[in-house]
Amino acid sequence: MPHLLIRGVAPEQIRTISQSLVAELASLCQCPSDYIMLECLNTTACFDGEFVPSYPFIEVNWFDRGTLVQDQAAECIDRHIRSLGIPEAEVAFRIYESSNYYSNGRKLSEPLPNEDESGAIQAVLSENERLKDELQKARKALLNNQTSSQMSSKLYDALRE
C-alpha cells in the first residue's frame, strides 16, 4: 500500500514514469517498492451528449501516514504526471483503517497467530506472577522485621528505665 488508481492518463504514459514514481513514493512512505501498485483504469467520460477524454485523476488508497507525507506524496504524483506534458490533474487520498481492512479473510489489525510467540508470552506471564508472589512475601517479611525491631527497641527502652 499505497494503491494508485489512475484515470485519464494512457497506460503507455504511466509506464514511462512508473519506475521513478514508485521509487520516490517508496522512499516517502518508507516501504518496499513492491508494496506500491499503479493501476491504469480505462474510463469513458461523457459530456453534453458526446464522449470526451477523461480528466486526469489519481486516487491514492493507503493507510494514513500523516499530513506531511501525504502532502509530499501528492506533490510527487503531480510532478510525475505533469512531466508527461499533462497540464493539470487531481490527486485524492482515501485513508484505510486497519480495523476495516482484511487480507486473506483476516482483519489487518489482528495479530497473526504464532504458537511460539503465545508460549513465550505465557512463560513471561507466569514468571511475572512468580515474581509478584516473591515481592509480596518479601514485603511481609520486611514489615514483620520492622514491627519486631520497633517492639524490641520499645522493650529495651522500657527495661532501661
Score class of each variant (00 low, 15 high):
residue 103 S to I: 14
residue 28 L to I: 01
residue 60 V to N: 01
residue 52 V to L: 04
residue 46 C to A: 15
residue 4 L to G: 00
residue 149 S to Q: 12
residue 67 T to D: 02
residue 86 I to F: 05
residue 111 P to V: 05
residue 127 E to C: 06
residue 119 G to T: 10
residue 150 Q to K: 10
residue 145 N to K: 13
residue 135 L to M: 09
residue 3 H to Q: 07
residue 131 L to W: 09
residue 137 K to I: 05
residue 56 P to K: 00
residue 53 P to C: 02
residue 90 E to M: 02
residue 72 Q to R: 09
residue 64 D to P: 00
residue 5 L to M: 06
residue 112 L to I: 10
residue 63 F to G: 03
residue 33 S to C: 12
residue 28 L to Q: 00
residue 47 F to L: 04
residue 22 V to C: 01
residue 122 Q to G: 06
residue 124 V to H: 10
residue 153 S to A: 10
residue 25 L to C: 04
residue 97 E to F: 04
residue 83 S to P: 05
residue 84 L to M: 04
residue 131 L to C: 10
residue 12 E to T: 06
residue 19 Q to G: 09
residue 133 D to S: 14
residue 159 L to C: 11
residue 27 S to V: 01
residue 38 L to C: 08
residue 91 V to I: 15
residue 97 E to W: 04
residue 138 A to H: 08
residue 30 Q to K: 04
residue 112 L to K: 14
residue 15 R to T: 12
residue 125 L to W: 14
residue 125 L to Y: 14
residue 99 S to Q: 15
residue 35 Y to C: 03
residue 146 Q to N: 09
residue 76 C to A: 13
residue 43 T to I: 15
residue 61 N to K: 13
residue 84 L to H: 02
residue 14 I to M: 02
residue 49 G to P: 05
residue 2 P to K: 06
residue 129 E to A: 14
residue 19 Q to S: 13
residue 117 E to D: 02
residue 132 K to V: 09
residue 125 L to G: 08
residue 100 N to G: 08
residue 99 S to K: 15
residue 126 S to Q: 11
residue 143 L to K: 06
residue 102 Y to I: 05
residue 69 V to N: 01
residue 31 C to I: 09
residue 53 P to M: 00
residue 84 L to Y: 01
residue 97 E to R: 14
residue 16 T to G: 03
residue 92 A to M: 06
residue 133 D to Y: 12
residue 63 F to N: 03
residue 117 E to N: 03
residue 105 G to S: 10
residue 125 L to C: 12
residue 87 P to Y: 00
residue 9 V to C: 08
residue 1 M to A: 15
residue 31 C to G: 06
residue 113 P to I: 07
residue 120 A to C: 04
residue 159 L to W: 08
